[in-house]
Design a protein around this nucleic acid. Structure first.
Length: 243
DNA sequence: TCATTAAATTGTT
DNA sequence: AACAATTTAATGA
């Protein structure tokens, strides 16, 4: 039988698979999809690369095919504030794209990633022509609004275990990040960076979540066993058993 | 395909 | 922050 082994190890999935991982393509009609695919650009981003920077004009609507991105902004003191991570399947920047404003945050690759971009003109064209695309974007905006409200609560929590749990719940959001699935590829170091804790503390928090059978810890990633548990689990603060 | 080695990631102090 | 243990990736026969 013929061997179909590739001559070269693929460092990223084939183009077909990359397209299949773009969630909104399936809601388009054939003509719309054809035009979108023709205009789509897919490229690699090395760890540390910027996908877009604050103040730059909007050129693309971006999505993550593979890897992990970080969304952050710089405050007046020059401190970098991390908002959220963007795992596979996530598309972002529609807010600034709609208003044609410059980007209001930096997007940086946390690890080697595959990023897709839809030119802003094509984005506008789809908004003008595709009902399905409008639904997708509206659903996306609505879901993200919920995430930002939840993120405010996370910021006010002083319990590290809760911070990790809720942040993970956000990354496992199946609506915003359909490419994640059951297993999120993220190292404990990367997660520590996103939630603003030390790697040791994240490791401890993950162990606590594992003990509650909410997640399973795997090498280079995490498997969610109970997504609702991540959203709603509770921890008794250390040394504060019954005050 | 398998054994060896290097690199990355995790667990612990 | 440093270290040891574990897992994966890379290399070459």
């Amino acid at each position: 039988m013929p061997s179909e082994k590739p001559l070269q190890i693929r460092q990223r999935m084939a183009y077909e698979a990359e397209l299949a991982s773009i969630p909104w393509l399936t809601v388009l009609r054939p003509a719309e999809r054809e035009r979108a695919i023709a205009e789509l650009r897919v490229g690699d981003a090395q760890a540390g690369d910027y996908v877009c920077r604050i103040g730059r004009p909007v050129t693309y609507w971006f999505g993550v095919v593979q890897g992990l991105l970080k969304m952050s902004s710089d405050n007046a003191q020059g401190m970098t504030m991390t908002f959220t991570g963007v795992p596979p399947g996530g598309w972002f920047g529609e807010g600034t794209a709609l208003k044609r404003e410059p980007y209001r945050y930096n997007i940086q690759a946390l690890r080697k990633s595959v990023v897709a971009g839809l030119p802003i003109d094509t984005f506008d064209w789809l908004l003008d022509h595709s009902i399905g695309f409008n639904r997708f974007v509206m659903n996306q905006l609505n879901e993200r609004l919920g995430q930002f409200i939840a993120a405010r609560e996370i910021d006010r929590m002083n319990n590290p275990d809760l911070r990790v749990a809720r942040s993970l719940a956000a990354l496992f959001n199946p609506v915003l990040y359909p490419g994640v699935g059951e297993v999120l590829r993220i190292t404990q170091q990367e997660l520590a960076y996103l939630v603003g804790l030390s790697r040791q503390r994240v490791n401890e928090a993950l162990a606590a979540l594992h003990a509650q059978e909410i997640i399973r810890i795997e090498y280079g990633g995490l498997r969610v066993l109970d997504l609702e548990g991540l959203r709603s689990c509770m921890f008794t603060a250390k040394g504060n058993g019954s005050a």
